[in-house]
Amino acid sequence: MKILLSFDIDGTLELGDPPGGVTVEMVRRAHEQGFIIGSCSDRPLSSQRAMWERIDMVPAFVASKHQLGDVKMKVSADAYYHMGDRDTDFQAAEENDFGFWWAHEAVAEPWLALQEDE
């Protein structure tokens, strides 16, 4: 099963401003375990790409927050999840039928359990 994880940046990832609790190591682990990863944030696309370059990872997508629906159309997966710290994250996820974790829930890497469930 292919699971897509969409990470908000500011307030969610440790690289964000303000920093969130989701570490680069968690993102890398998810990537290594076969999750499709990318970012969906209020940052400019250039800035998102620059962040992925800095941690030497190639994301499957970068998107603005209102483009979460487009991610679903462009990247094929069996299940879609977004995580973030703002109402706008929650709304974007809800509108586009993404599963959702608040940033503070995401630090427990709840996606790992999804794979174990298989």
Partner: peptide
Amino acid sequence: EPFTEEDYVNGR
């Protein structure tokens, strides 16, 4: 990093 026209028109 530079901010591009693509960035601008993709703003929500």
